[in-house]
Each structure stands twice: as structure tokens, then as C-alpha cells.
Design a protein around this nucleic acid. Structure first.
Length: 206
DNA sequence: AACTCGGGGCA
DNA sequence: TGCCCAGAGTT
């Protein structure tokens, strides 16, 4: 769907994408990819996830953080898909957020990457980068950041923009160790220059 | 707004 | 070892 998406899970079908994004909360994409690689071999449809005991599903995703909550949510989610949507993932954002474990960010990722609806998915990376680059105020909530980004970027580029910002935040403008010394956006940054000055003198014998 | 869940990755 | 991480739900 998005050939330059930074993460394998964005190339999955709507159902697998939903499961993968739900699993990705509070852990890195590399970890999720390792688990889903084998998980999607064993579980193909919603029926497959509820056909096994909860303990077995927990064990299958045990390497992911928060795995107990996530396993429980996945089984409830699959049951809801079967009961209400004929086993398919609904395409409406509002219906998606009614699913257990699916919040605003996950729903935005699903509608934009699986169904082609432009959306700005704001996670911690997008929030941090947006605030550093003055695309939003430091005290803005996640929702406020999302609105400001949508205002600044053309609608048809919302989806690819959140991919770019996530990639930039994950691999370059990191939370704890941003690579300010080689950053081309240093002049637009709220904290970059001050940070470089503060971390520069590494051998001041005081 | 603050708290909790939780194993993996990284310094 | 300690600390943080592609969030969501509850209080």
C-alpha cells in the first residue's frame, strides 16, 4: 500500500495490520515483526484466535510487552469482528475505536494504511518531533498536535507525513539521544542548538 | 492528568 | 542493571 512505509506491518491486510498495530503499543517495530512473522503463519482469521485457549495466545506473543492485556484484547476483538462485522475489519474510524485495544492512534493507522483514508497518526515520536520542530506547542495534547499537523499538511499527504515523522523520530530525532550534530533541521528546532552547546564540552576539568 | 501494564533493547 | 519504548483503558 505504501511502498516507502518504514515498517513491514504496514504492508499486511487490514486484519493483520490491526493485530500488528495493536501489538506494537509500547514496544519497537522490530520486536513486533519478529512475533508477527510466526504469529500470522498460525493465525489467519479471527476464528483462529478464539479457537485456542487464552494461555496459548499469551504464550505465542509472550515476547511482546503488555502481552497479557493484548492477548485478551485480541480474542475479544476477534469475537466482535465475527459477531458484528462478518469477520471483517470495519472501515469506519468510529467503529474501529470501539474495538478493545484499539484507540485513536491505532484506528488512524488502520484507516490510512489499510483503507486509503488520509489520517495523521500521532504517536510519541510524532508528538516529540512536532514539538521540537515547532510544528506544535510543547504543552499541546496529542489531539491538538494531530489537528495542527493536518492544518499544515495537504490532506493527501497526511499518511505519508506521519510515516516520515515517525521514521525521523525513531531513527534520527530520538527521544534521549537525538543526532543534532548532523541534523539538517537544526535551525528549525526548539531545542537542538541549546542541546548541542550543553553537551559539547565533554572534558571540562573543573 | 496520572497511573498501570511488561518484556525487550540499549546505554 | 536501570531506564525507556510505534498506547490504551481506568480512576
Amino acid at each position: 500500500m505504501f511502498p516507502d512505509a518504514h515498517c513491514e506491518l504496514y504492508h499486511a491486510n487490514p486484519f493483520e495490520l490491526t493485530i500488528a498495530v495493536l501489538l506494537s503499543a509500547q514496544c519497537t517495530d522490530e520486536t513486533v515483526n519478529k512475533v508477527t512473522a510466526t504469529l500470522f503463519e498460525k493465525y489467519k482469521k479471527p476464528e483462529d484466535y478464539i479457537a485456542v485457549p487464552l494461555e496459548e495466545l499469551e504464550s505465542d506473543i509472550r515476547r511482546i510487552g503488555l502481552f497479557r492485556n493484548k492477548a485478551k484484547n485480541i480474542q475479544k476483538l476477534c469475537q466482535m469482528l465475527i459477531d458484528k462485522y462478518n469477520g471483517e475489519v470495519p472501515q469506519e474510524h468510529e467503529l474501529l475505536t470501539e474495538l478493545p485495544g484499539v484507540g485513536r492512534k491505532t484506528a488512524n493507522v488502520v484507516v490510512s494504511n489499510a483503507f486509503g483514508v488520509p489520517a495523521m497518526a500521532v504517536d510519541t515520536h510524532v508528538e516529540r518531533v512536532s514539538k521540537r520542530l515547532k510544528l506544535a506547542d510543547e504543552t499541546d495534547s496529542v489531539l491538538e498536535v494531530e489537528k495542527k499537523l493536518m492544518r499544515k499538511v495537504p490532506r493527501e499527504e497526511w499518511t505519508i507525513t506521519h510515516h516520515r515523522l515517525i521514521f525521523f523520530g525513531r531513527y534520527h530525532c530520538k527521544a534521549q539521544s537525538p543526532r543534532c550534530e548532523i541534523c539538517p533541521l537544526i535551525d528549525c528546532c526548539r531545542v537542538g542548538k541549546a542541546r548541542m552547546k550543553a553537551t559539547k564540552p565533554r572534558k571540562t576539568g573543573k
